[in-house]
Amino acid sequence: MQPRKTELARDALQAHRAPLDMRQRRLLILCDGQRDLAQLTAMIGPEASAMVIQLIQSGYLVSTAPPEPAPAPAAAPPATATTAGGGAPVTERRRSLVSARIYLLGILELQRHPQAAALLYTLQQARSDDQVVSALHASLEALPGLTSAGYCERVRQRLFEVLPETHLAQLEQAGVVAG
């Protein structure tokens, strides 16, 4: 199976207003009709097949063959946590400073503003974790002046979804994280 985007998906990716989380958006971008499910699983992770099925059912992807589950990796199963009510287990999302950095680099590239270009360069040149966190902080502080408040808040929320807890605490101390 080689899933590809529908017009609904193209509109959702362009408008940034669809009810998609960052991982779903990333998967939509990668679904170009050239990659099969095994390649997508290698890029996204073991939950890619379930996400593809969900996006097909939502009308964001189409495929010529029915979705097949990807083979389970031989490595350890993903970490799980139970819901507060003792319900079904929920898969934890992986957090990564690299993912946060790449996401914000992409956002800054889209801004077409000299200040965004300077922030992009600073974030690209950051080598240590502290430099990266500092560049993330500077970018988040400048973003409200470069784009709409709603877009800025969505970027902030998605960034905080992937940022490791320790680095999120650093931004919280700097006053970037609200509440």
Score class of each variant (00 low, 15 high):
4 R>T: 09
4 R>I: 07
5 K>N: 09
5 K>R: 15
7 E>Q: 14
8 L>P: 03
10 R>K: 10
10 R>G: 05
10 R>F: 04
12 A>K: 06
13 L>G: 08
14 Q>H: 08
15 A>K: 12
16 H>N: 10
16 H>I: 00
19 P>K: 06
21 D>P: 03
22 M>W: 10
26 R>L: 02
29 I>F: 09
32 D>V: 08
33 G>V: 06
33 G>A: 09
35 R>K: 15
37 L>M: 11
38 A>V: 14
39 Q>M: 13
39 Q>A: 15
41 T>I: 08
42 A>F: 03
43 M>R: 12
44 I>K: 01
45 G>V: 11
45 G>Q: 10
49 S>Y: 01
49 S>L: 07
51 M>K: 13
52 V>H: 02
54 Q>H: 09
54 Q>L: 12
57 Q>A: 11
57 Q>W: 02
58 S>Q: 15
60 Y>K: 10
67 P>W: 06
68 E>I: 10
69 P>K: 06
70 A>M: 07
72 A>R: 15
73 P>T: 13
78 P>M: 01
79 A>K: 05
80 T>R: 11
81 A>R: 10
81 A>C: 02
82 T>C: 00
83 T>D: 08
84 A>P: 13
84 A>S: 14
85 G>C: 06
85 G>S: 12
85 G>H: 04
87 G>L: 08
88 A>H: 03
90 V>K: 03
91 T>R: 14
92 E>R: 00
92 E>C: 00
93 R>V: 01
97 L>E: 03
97 L>Y: 03
99 S>W: 15
99 S>I: 02
100 A>K: 01
102 I>L: 15
104 L>C: 08
105 L>D: 11
107 I>H: 03
108 L>V: 02
109 E>Y: 15
109 E>G: 10
109 E>S: 14
110 L>C: 02
110 L>S: 13
111 Q>S: 07
112 R>F: 07
112 R>K: 13
113 H>Y: 07
114 P>D: 07
115 Q>D: 14
116 A>W: 01
118 A>V: 04
118 A>D: 14
121 Y>N: 14
123 L>W: 07
124 Q>L: 11
128 S>H: 02
129 D>M: 01
133 V>R: 13
135 A>E: 12
136 L>Y: 05
136 L>V: 00
137 H>A: 07
137 H>K: 10
139 S>V: 05
139 S>M: 13
140 L>H: 10
142 A>R: 14
143 L>A: 01
144 P>G: 09
145 G>D: 14
145 G>W: 12
147 T>M: 07
147 T>C: 06
149 A>R: 14
150 G>A: 05
151 Y>A: 04
151 Y>N: 02
152 C>L: 09
154 R>P: 01
156 R>F: 01
160 F>I: 02
163 L>R: 06
166 T>W: 10
167 H>D: 14
167 H>V: 05
168 L>W: 15
168 L>T: 05
171 L>P: 12
171 L>D: 12
172 E>K: 12
172 E>N: 13
175 G>D: 12
175 G>K: 09
175 G>F: 04
